[in-house]
């Protein structure tokens, strides 16, 4: 066997490996759509997406998932508002300011946070945060948007922080040196040179953090309260899409309308995460610093 045939064989094998994950994804998407699409023979797309009433087991059943979509979006948005400053600023501190010894400790603590199982965080939200919120603010319930958002933020911080940190590290030394040479202070260098240069990576980090929050299931199942209504305040309960799917799938009769509606909800969730990923991709290209700062 000569070298080129060997090369070709190896290439082909590697291609097969790459194909496996594509195939798996394709199969998952295929079955998601196969199980979910039939619902639209019974319920129109508009009624499904914009309907305000989710009564899957009533007679006749009502499949309006707008309150669920709204629930998902609102907890994602608020958790992002909480997680972005914490994640990005901690990344800046670790990458630019912290002394080397502290840097390592902080990094490993944040990595540990990423490794916490979501059920543990959910339990924490249910047993500690919910009663605390309820007693402190004299609320009717502690299982609400704020509670879920705080816990989701804790989960998104490690993602945002570590990806932002990589982006900050990737800013070339020359930028920093040039800035200092021009007489800029450390603060000016970070805010006007390093951070803008790392912006595309930081934005990607934020969006990946958001898609982590929107897809998270256990936490919202345990602490969001599960009320399928449009909330009137931040202290109301909501029922995000993953919570609804997880809670009901086990009990929905196989291939019933309810079962199909849950798969269709999964399709909506899939579409949202896909959009987040496409936006992340677009942003990282759009704001990319060309040349040596490229991440």
């Amino acid at each position: 066997m000569n070298r080129t045939t060997k090369e070709k064989i190896i290439k082909f094998i590697l291609f097969l490996f790459a194909l496996v994950s594509v195939l798996v994804l394709a199969l998952i998407v295929f079955s998601l759509f196969r199980e979910g699409l039939p619902i639209f023979r019974e319920v129109s797309l508009g009624d499904f997406l914009l309907g305000l009433e989710w009564y899957p087991t009533a007679d006749p059943p009502l499949f309006g998932i707008f309150p669920l979509i709204f629930g998902s979006l609102v907890v994602t948005l608020i958790s992002t508002i909480i997680a972005v400053p914490l994640g990005v600023l901690s990344a800046i501190y670790i990458a630019e300011i912290a002394p080397a010894s502290l840097k390592e400790i902080l990094k490993s603590i944040i990595e540990l946070l990423a490794g916490l199982p979501s059920v543990i965080l959910g339990f924490f939200g249910m047993i500690v945060v919910a009663p605390w919120l309820q007693d402190t603010f004299d609320l009717p319930t502690g299982l609400n948007i704020i509670n879920a958002s705080v816990i989701l933020a804790i989960m998104a911080i490690p993602t945002i922080s570590s990806i932002s940190e990589d982006a900050l590290y990737a800013v070339p030394r020359e930028f920093k040196e040039a800035s200092y040479a021009l007489g800029a202070t450390k603060f000016e260098t970070i805010t006007k040179v390093i951070f803008p240069a790392a912006l595309s990576g930081v934005s990607t980090a934020v969006i990946l953090g958001m898609s982590r929050a929107i897809g998270e299931t256990m936490v919202v199942l345990m602490v969001a309260g599960g009320a399928a209504a449009i909330p009137e305040s931040l202290f109301d309960s909501v029922r995000p899409m993953p919570a609804s799917i997880a809670a009901e799938m086990g009990e929905a009769p196989y291939r019933s309308l309810h079962y199909q509606a849950l798969f269709a909800t999964g399709m909506v969730l899939f579409a949202l995460t896909l959009i987040f990923n496409l936006v992340a991709d677009y942003v990282s290209h759009r704001f990319r610093q060309s040349g040596s700062a490229t991440l």
Partner: peptide, 10 residues
């Protein structure tokens, strides 16, 4: 129907 404001726990 149960009010949609009801919390649903698993």
């Amino acid at each position: 129907k149960v009010t949609p404001r009801a919390q649903m726990l698993p």
